[in-house]
Write a protein that binds this DNA or RNA. Structure first.
Lengths: 194, 194
DNA sequence: CGCGACGTTGATTTGCCTCAACGATTGTGG
DNA sequence: CCACAATCGTTGAGGCAAATCAACGTCGCG
């Protein structure tokens, strides 16, 4: 499988010497999942981080009524894991599922620790990665109480332009925090207005 | 000012040798702020991280209508910054304000970089700190769309037991994402029920 | 073909907001 | 030390954004 996307992803934040690059690649495992395959089930343990090369993943919870709530999407170039379970070793709160046939690189937690020991720069890489992710979740939390659904949808469109037309509307509705019915009405009202 | 709380905070995640401890402490500046003092204003630049020793801080945004929305509180033992501005150098989205007379340790961004160079372990420390923070924001985002206000309030009570009775209800209402009026009604309905 | 997932539309309900009025407490300047 | 303003919490009436429930059309697929 193609290692270029994940190397490009890492190089955006840290410089890599050829030997460091080799050490990194040696710890990665390729994986593919078919559409709808469940890669992590809530209640299980998350032991690895996934980097999407092609396809798309989603993470979501299932509430007491059995309803699903999407937390995040991972199109190509994005990382995904249940961070809570990954760092604590406790039962995962999230499910992770492939929305399309998906190709990934997998970095297991033990291999990640090995990587930190061999190439300490990666501590920095993941710190910055998590920092950026934190900033975006803070903003989403504020948006959730500050903005009406329509503006959250527009933000989604500008943030994930590639997903707007490829994902089922149901998934997008759940991501921005509304029901599929309301999402449909909101969208047709939007189209009618321009 | 007392360095014990911040050393204890760091030691929960990494081991420190005496010389590393000294290098760390040498980079910290003490600061105090009076109740209501603004430590960071949206639009300005956040250039430092704050560690609260005594008192309490809050971060919040002001929306187009002039309404405030609390993102987070920092009671003793917590860190606070506008991470977006801190890491990007761009205009801050958040305001940071003292809710009481507050004593803090301040670590400026340049000093933090110095610290990373002198004691690389601190990359690890802040990575773990940010990881934990990220996990809690992910959960809050899900809670915001999954749980009714009443359950979000109960979660708040168990998460910040020390703040429940010391903070103005207005601030707590804003944190969980409801108006003060609704919060008041919700709370009296809760009390009436047990 | 027939079934299941998806999207649409309408009628009704509800959780929470807005606006307004009113005590109680705090704090501040004269 | 008092008077007054400001802030805070409470309560009520009415309104709105979004949820719920239900019915229906469409598509892709076994």
């Amino acid at each position: 499988m193609d290692a270029a996307p994940i190397l490009a992803n890492v190089r955006r934040l840290i410089d890599l010497q050829p030997d460091e690059e080799q050490a990194f690649l040696a710890l990665l495992q390729p994986r593919q999942a078919r559409r709808k395959a469940l890669l992590l089930e809530a209640g299980g343990t998350c032991t690895e981080s996934l980097f999407v090369v092609e396809g798309c993943l989603r993470s979501f919870t299932v509430d007491a009524d059995g309803a699903e709530h999407v937390l995040s999407f991972a199109p190509p170039g994005w990382w995904m894991a249940d961070l809570y379970s990954l760092v604590s070793g406790r039962a995962a709160l999230l499910n992770i599922q492939a929305l399309e046939d998906t190709q990934m690189w997998v970095l297991s937690r033990p291999d990640q620790e090995t990587l930190f020991a061999q190439v300490p720069k990666f501590e920095r890489f993941f710190r910055i990665l998590v920092e950026r992710s934190l900033v975006s979740y803070q903003q989403r939390l504020l948006d959730q109480t500050t903005l009406p659904a329509e503006e959250r949808y527009q933000k989604f469109c500008s943030y994930y332009p590639s997903l707007v037309h490829t994902l089922p509307q149901k998934q997008i509705a759940s991501f921005i925090g509304v029901t599929p019915e309301f999402f449909s009405k909101m969208r047709s009202a939007l189209l009618r207005r321009d």
